[in-house]
């Protein structure tokens, strides 16, 4: 279970760095050594939705503060 959590955290971290557009050689090779791309794609879509929701929340906070 712990290993699984660790993997997911690594995938999330690498997708977040993808959003920022910065990644180092080492973790990129490790990312791309993994067998199937699907976990990355799912994490990517989920995090994209979270990004959209985060932006909408920021807008509401900004509007609420007036």
């Amino acid at each position: 279970m712990k290993q699984m959590l660790l993997d997911w955290w690594r995938i999330v971290r690498s997708v977040l760095s993808a959003f920022l557009g910065v990644q180092n050689e080492h973790s990129r090779q490790r990312d791309f050594a993994s067998d199937s791309p699907w976990p990355f794609i799912i994490a990517g879509v989920v995090l994209a939705l979270i990004l959209v929701i985060a932006l909408v929340l920021i807008v509401h906070v900004v509007l609420a503060s007036g």
Partner: peptide, 11 residues
Amino acid sequence: HENTLVEIIWT
């Protein structure tokens, strides 16, 4: 051809 620290700064 890589320097992640510099890249993070200019992001």
